[in-house]
Amino acid sequence: MAAQPDFLWIKNDMSPDGRVFRVSRQAAQHSTILRALIEDFEGIDLWKKEQCIPIKIHVSDQCLSDVLQWAENTKTAPEKGENADNNKQVELAAEDMHFFREAITTSEKLYELLMLTDYLGIVPLYNMACQVVVNMIMGKSAEQIRRMLGISKDFTPEQEEAIRAETAWAYDEEQPPLDR
């Protein structure tokens, strides 16, 4: 395929398959890393397949593909500026819900999504992924959380008892007074 001027090429060096992905200029705007790259190298010819940008992160090509697909599909302008809040509560829009239902079906995939969006600085998607985890945790009992996140209990009964005592504050009993 002919290299068009408005596409970047990305390849994950850590992935065994190592496919090369095409990223439109518009989609690249979602990633603070790619955006910075484009700004810094505006004059230079970035837009060739031979100029493939290597990334190094332990995620599958499937995940990279999903994320880039999301970026292509998401037209809303990403937040501009340095202080785009990296850490705020988000509501998931319907398309994004769809994305999470279709693409992120296991907690492994969620893990990869978090790693990758953090790496590429795709803040909105990262925040949404965080929120998805938060929603899995909120209001659940320890056992439910374990099941939800696929964690296995690795305490001895004694350890568990000790932690239970430490976290009793949330249930009932006096705390020693605090000095101001």
Binding site: H58, N86, N87, Q89, S107, E108, L110, Y111, E112, L114, M115, D118, Y126, C130, Q131, V133, V134, I137, M138, G139, K140, S141, A142, I145, R146, L149, G150, I151, S152, K153, D154, F155, E160, I163, R164, E166, T167, W169, A170, Y171
Partner: peptide
């Protein structure tokens, strides 16, 4: 590739959004 193996900064940004009450239950998970 487990969620519990996320690097601390990502864990932080997830857990800083939960309700205070949830922080009492999470330590009991693992």
């Amino acid at each position: 590739t487990h969620l519990t193996h996320l690097p601390p900064e990502i864990l932080h940004s997830i857990l800083s959004h939960v309700d205070p009450e949830d922080l009492s239950r999470l330590p009991l998970t693992c």
